[in-house]
Amino acid sequence: MTPVQGLIRPDLVAKIGFGLVAAATFGGAIIAVFFRNIIHNVLGLALALFGVAGIFFYLGSPFLAFMELLIYVGAITITITFAIMLSKPIGGPLPERSFKKTLGAGSVCVLIFGLLSYIVMGTKWTPAAMRSSDWSVKAIGQMLLTKYDLVFELISLVLLVSILGAIVTARYGRGRVE
């Protein structure tokens, strides 16, 4: 053991690391929900997803962490921003907050939170020591094509539907102009 390594306690470093990514996730989520400027909301979402990627990294799966960065931070938030920039003039007075909408959104959130907590509490989690710790790309690939085959296929179905939707929207718009 070298002098400096003795000073740096691995468990403390891990705790600080977890604190940082959790703070990024929560802070980002708060910005995404409560701020009034829609561009700030999207960037908050990006921060939250960045934090989620950090949590994956903390849990020992860099592959998932970088995929989260690449797909969610890189592609999804950017596509959302793009849609916002193209759809609505930015600036000008902000619309009033409607109490009904806030109440509706809040109750949906509480409902989902309750449901998820119920599932999380009810699940019998396997302790880390008894689980397989093989998070290599190979293992993930094999899992996706064997055990989680149905989920994998369903995701591609979702993508297919969204592509079809995009094509229908674009085609319709073009027909009207001509």
């Binding site: 970088f66 995929m67 960065l69 690449l70 890189g74 950017i78 790309v137």
Partner: peptide
């Protein structure tokens, strides 16, 4: 072991900053 993903994962932040 996923080095190439690190590079491309973080390079996407570039667009976000331009934005």
């Amino acid at each position: 072991n996923v080095g190439i993903l690190l590079i491309f994962g973080f390079s996407t932040l570039n667009v976000l900053t331009i934005l």
